[in-house]
Amino acid sequence: MKTYMAKPGEVQQKWYVVDAKGQVFGRLASKIASILHGKNKPEYTPHVDTGDFVIVINAEQVVFTGKKLEQKLYRTHSGYPGGLKETPYKVLMEKKPEFALYEAVRRMLPKNRLGRKMLKKLRVYKGAEHEHAAQMPEVIEL
C-alpha cells in the first residue's frame, strides 16, 4: 500500500470564520496555525500547502490567562547593539490587537517559503465585520 501525497493542484481549500471573543490567546493562535497548515485534514502532506483560509473577527476581545496581559512582552530587535524593544501585551492589545494575534500565528508556522504562503491565507480583524462575504466562509467553533 502506497502513502498518499497531496499534489498542489488537487487540494480543495475552504474559507472559515473564527470568532475570537472570549477565546484564550495562545490556544486560539495554535488552532488557527493548525488549520492554516492543513493538519485538520486527512490529506495533510508536510511539503504541500493543504491548509484553508481563516478569517478571525473580534481580535480585541481575546482573553489572556493569569497575569500574562501585564507580564508578557512582545520583543523585537533591530540587530544593532542595544536595539531590543519590549512592549507589554497590554499596550499591544490596546493599539494593535490584530497584529498581536497575527504575530502569534506567524511564529507558530514554518519559517520557510511554505510558511509564508500559509500566512497569506490569514485575515485578522479588530471588530465583528469582515469583507470576505463573497467567499462564503463557514463559521467554525474552536
Results as ranks from 00 to 15, higher is better:
residue 75 R to A: 10
residue 7 K to G: 15
residue 48 V to G: 07
residue 127 G to K: 07
residue 49 D to G: 11
residue 25 F to T: 07
residue 63 V to G: 09
residue 86 E to V: 00
residue 23 Q to T: 02
residue 114 L to W: 00
residue 37 H to L: 15
residue 91 V to T: 13
residue 17 V to L: 07
residue 45 T to C: 02
residue 114 L to F: 01
residue 125 Y to H: 11
residue 77 H to F: 02
residue 11 V to P: 13
residue 26 G to Y: 07
residue 9 G to M: 13
residue 83 G to Y: 05
residue 93 M to G: 11
residue 112 N to Q: 01
residue 30 S to M: 12
residue 59 A to L: 06
residue 23 Q to S: 05
residue 99 F to E: 02
residue 70 E to S: 00
residue 141 E to H: 13
residue 34 S to A: 08
residue 69 L to I: 02
residue 60 E to Y: 14
residue 75 R to V: 14
residue 15 W to S: 10
residue 122 L to F: 13
residue 61 Q to C: 10
residue 116 R to P: 02
residue 123 R to V: 05
residue 55 I to W: 03
residue 132 H to D: 03
residue 137 P to F: 09
residue 124 V to K: 05
residue 77 H to Q: 08
residue 89 Y to D: 00
residue 70 E to T: 01
residue 45 T to Y: 10
residue 17 V to K: 03
residue 58 N to K: 09
residue 86 E to K: 06
residue 86 E to A: 08
residue 104 A to T: 09
residue 129 E to M: 08
residue 142 L to F: 14
residue 17 V to W: 09
residue 27 R to I: 01
residue 62 V to N: 08
residue 26 G to R: 05
residue 32 I to Q: 14
residue 34 S to Y: 02
residue 81 P to V: 03
residue 105 V to S: 07
residue 49 D to L: 13
residue 131 E to L: 04
residue 119 L to N: 08
residue 12 Q to D: 11
residue 70 E to Q: 01
residue 91 V to I: 15
residue 65 T to P: 01
residue 102 Y to L: 02
residue 1 M to S: 10
residue 76 T to W: 01
residue 34 S to H: 03
residue 40 N to P: 00
residue 15 W to Q: 14
residue 30 S to G: 08
residue 99 F to A: 05
residue 69 L to R: 00
residue 139 V to P: 00
residue 21 K to H: 14
residue 125 Y to G: 07
residue 124 V to C: 08
residue 114 L to P: 00
residue 109 L to I: 10
residue 81 P to N: 07
residue 10 E to P: 02
residue 44 Y to I: 12
residue 66 G to E: 01
residue 65 T to I: 03
residue 18 V to G: 06
residue 118 M to A: 02
residue 39 K to D: 04
residue 63 V to S: 11
